[in-house]
Design a protein around this nucleic acid. Structure first.
Lengths: 106, 106
DNA sequence: CTCGAATATTCCTGTAAAGGAATATTCTAA
DNA sequence: TTAGAATATTCCTTTACAGGAATATTCGAG
């Protein structure tokens, strides 16, 4: 819909970054660990993390030398919301889901 | 997660294409109408539609001279599924949503 | 069978983005 | 205060992709 979603899609449209995001589901990680697990070089890892950060997908916490990158919830929530505009596409099961989401308690 | 999602993200990471997808929510359209409503030239519209088609986001039905482009449901369903892997990120409300989705009747 | 409408394709050019390599920065420990 | 670990940044080169312009294709009407 808007500019921010475009940035999120662009950030995720790259295999290494997609794998980073998947990796970070299990919790925050440092740059070195990410690079190692993804079998990429540290500078590339830093660059990709920067892109993810600028897209708001990831946030960083400094701990001395280390930087811990962690997933942010908001972009995923926004994708969820964006997707609701397309649920009517497939079938009426999701009309019920829409109702559920609308009435969902906090 | 996989290659197909990457292609979908890449296809949506472009403003004109994103607007096309949004436009097509209200139903199939021909290339000329799409180009006109998006204020882009016809060749660019055709090119973007081709990208969307190759990503599986859109399908085309030939009607004489005309080509009617329509949204496909599958990529949106897959995004939905992909997103469920991230719902745990924000809060436990969505644990209930997960239950709902799992037990959702066909 | 020719014309015009609708759409697709090709060619060209500019630009953005990715990876490699090297280097810069920042912090802790000693 | 210096060494080394962890991370970021810069520079360079290559490649992908977007838009413009022109042209090709395909179809129905007449």
């Amino acid at each position: 819909m808007d500019k921010e979603n475009i940035a999120v899609f662009a950030a995720l449209a790259e295999p290494s970054r997609m794998r980073m995001v998947s990796l970070l589901r299990s919790g925050p990680l440092g740059v070195g660990e990410i690079a190692e697990r993804l079998q990429i070089r540290q500078p590339q890892a830093s660059k990709h993390l920067k892109v993810l950060q600028q897209a708001g997908i990831v946030e960083v916490e400094a701990d001395a030398n280390r930087r811990h990158y962690r997933l942010r919830a908001e972009p995923f929530q926004e994708l969820e919301i964006w997707l609701t505009g397309y649920r009517e596409l497939w079938n009426e099961r999701f009309d019920r889901l829409d109702d559920y989401l609308k009435n969902m308690p906090d």
